[in-house]
Simulated assay, not measured.
Amino acid sequence: MAETLTVRPDADKAERYQTLIPQAEALLAGETDLIAGLANLAAMLKMSFDWLWAGFYLVKNDQLVLGPFQGPLACTRIAHGKGVCGSAWAQAKTLVVPDVDAFPGHIACSSASRSEIVVPLIDTSGTVTGVLDIDSEQLYAFDSVDAEYLEKLAALIAPLFD
């Protein structure tokens, strides 16, 4: 198990992800507990990028329920199809929102959030079991580079749902 995280502060976004992914793989190697894995991944993401919020919501009884996260207090439950998280769950696709104020039905869990990316967590049977949610205090903080690498990180989690 990894005990330290190595990320160069001067590295560009793609380089940070390229450094983070093998460390996440090592951290999750042999891990069987979903919550432990999600908690450490949330910490890794927050430490690597210093976003406002990085964490997970898990599907429970037809709603998303707050899971492990790093950042300010968050919404506890989100309905299917509601807000960015519920929409990513319903559509089973990554949503990049450059300006949350322009997203119809955005749920403002934190007034400091300005942009957001949400990646569905899909188990090995193809079912959406939760979402990875990341918020930034900056507009236009996320792009296709984030989507590509965060989807790779989300794929590492799939075996923990089995």
Rank of each mutant, 00 (worst) to 15 (best):
A88W: 02
A92Y: 00
A92H: 04
N40I: 00
A14Q: 14
G55P: 04
C75N: 09
G67V: 05
R114S: 03
L41Q: 04
F142E: 05
L66D: 09
V131H: 12
V128A: 12
F56D: 07
L5D: 00
L52V: 05
D146M: 11
D62V: 05
F56Q: 07
L153H: 07
S136I: 04
G130R: 06
A14P: 15
M47A: 15
K13W: 02
Q63L: 13
A14E: 13
S125Q: 14
G30C: 09
S113P: 07
P9A: 13
I122D: 08
G67H: 08
V128P: 14
A24I: 00
L45G: 08
L160K: 12
A102I: 03
A79C: 06
S87T: 13
I107V: 10
L150R: 12
V59C: 09
I21C: 04
I117G: 01
P98W: 00
A74G: 10
F142Y: 09
T6N: 08
E15I: 05
Q18I: 03
G130H: 05
H106C: 06
L28D: 02
K60N: 09
V7A: 01
V119D: 03
I35V: 15
A39P: 00
D50A: 14
A42Q: 06
G30A: 08
D146H: 11
T32E: 07
A147V: 13
S110Q: 04
A39L: 01
K13Y: 02
D162S: 14
A26L: 08
D146G: 11
D33S: 08
S115P: 05
D135K: 00
K152H: 15
A42S: 12
G30S: 10
I35G: 07
I157D: 10
G55R: 03
D101W: 04
I21V: 11
S111P: 02
Q18M: 07
S48Y: 00
F103L: 02
A158D: 13
V128Q: 10
A79G: 11
T76Y: 11
D143K: 03
L5R: 00
V59T: 09
G105L: 08
P22N: 11
A74F: 06
A74R: 11
S115I: 01
K60T: 08
S125E: 14
A2T: 01
A155V: 06
Q23E: 02
I35E: 14
E15G: 10
E116N: 03
T124S: 13
H106T: 04
R114P: 02
